[in-house]
């Protein structure tokens, strides 16, 4: 949690990259992480693959299916993260669905997260109300930040509630859609939504995700938010090129710097 908070204080125009653990290969986690760090990702979201990822489009769905076939599980992931704890400096977030976490045991899961140096969690189907009632204490006592999503349909009073409970950043979903790259720039509607949220002067910064696939998208949303999150576009890259170190470094540099 603190690592993330420090990063947000020190830097603007952050680039966060999502990848699915165990994709394209079971042991891709470390090489992908190192390449992302070297390429200039400011923090990473490691996807915990799930059989039924409701909020994800076909690209991330497919990467999850492959990762599960490769034998990825929370147990395997935590073992991998234990080994690479010292070699990765940038903050790491885990993203995944509630059922595997529930099955693992939420307390045991949070302890493992703390142990391997995870800063925050994005669990889309763990709603705010359940988090507050059952898990807020557990998360904050262990220094794990729970990251809330907001969408163009989230009413202002709900955004205020989520902001109050937010301890690192708010994940601003760019439009009403599941994850996946989209063509074209920002629509006037999206700009209105970003400006509406900006004008609320939230205590924690926002990162924009869903549909961000290239340098231009990234720069554009940085005008309205603290940074951007790229997921499906990177998974697509892994799908085509594999987990080659130099290729990933090049991809991230191009994403960040435009060349």
């Amino acid at each position: 949690m603190e690592k993330l908070q420090t990063l947000f204080k020190q830097k603007k125009d952050l680039l966060s990259v999502y990848f699915t653990a165990g994709f394209p290969n079971i042991d891709s986690t470390l090489p992908v992480l190192k390449a992302l760090e070297e390429g200039g990702a400011d923090f990473v979201e490691i996807g915990m693959p799930y059989s039924d990822p409701l909020a994800d489009g076909p690209v991330i769905q497919n990467s999850s299916t492959v990762a599960l076939k490769n034998g990825m599980s929370l147990k395997v992931l935590f073992e991998q993260l234990k080994e690479l704890k010292k070699s990765v400096k940038i903050p790491m977030i885990l993203m995944g669905y509630f059922n595997p976490v529930l099955k693992f045991g939420v307390e045991a899961f949070i302890e493992e997260c703390k142990e391997v140096g995870i800063s925050g969690l994005i669990i889309p189907d763990l709603p705010y109300e359940t988090y507050i009632e059952e898990y807020e204490k557990l998360f904050t006592e262990n220094g794990i930040s729970n990251i809330f999503l907001i969408t163009p349909q989230t009413p202002d009073d709900r955004i205020k509630k989520l902001n109050k409970a937010s301890t690192s950043f708010i994940y601003m979903v760019s439009s009403a859609a599941v994850t996946g790259a989209r063509n074209g720039g920002l629509s006037p509607k999206q700009v209105d939504y970003f400006e509406r949220v900006n004008s609320m002067e939230l205590k924690t910064p926002c990162m924009v995700g869903f549909g961000i696939s290239n340098h231009q998208n990234y720069k554009e949303v940085c005008n309205y938010a603290h940074g951007a999150i790229v997921g499906s576009a990177f998974i697509k890259h892994l799908e085509n090129i594999g987990d080659d170190h130099n290729e990933i470094v090049g991809f991230i540099k191009k994403l960040k710097n435009g060349q």
């Binding site: 039924d52 599960l68 059922n99 693992f104």
Partner: peptide, 21 residues
């Protein structure tokens, strides 16, 4: 089945030891 979440509801569902449906 065992207790877990499917399609937005806590209920009984068939799942693996790793919580995959």
């Amino acid at each position: 089945g065992e207790t877990g979440v499917i399609h937005g509801s806590m209920t009984n569902l068939m799942q693996t030891n790793d919580g995959q449906i």
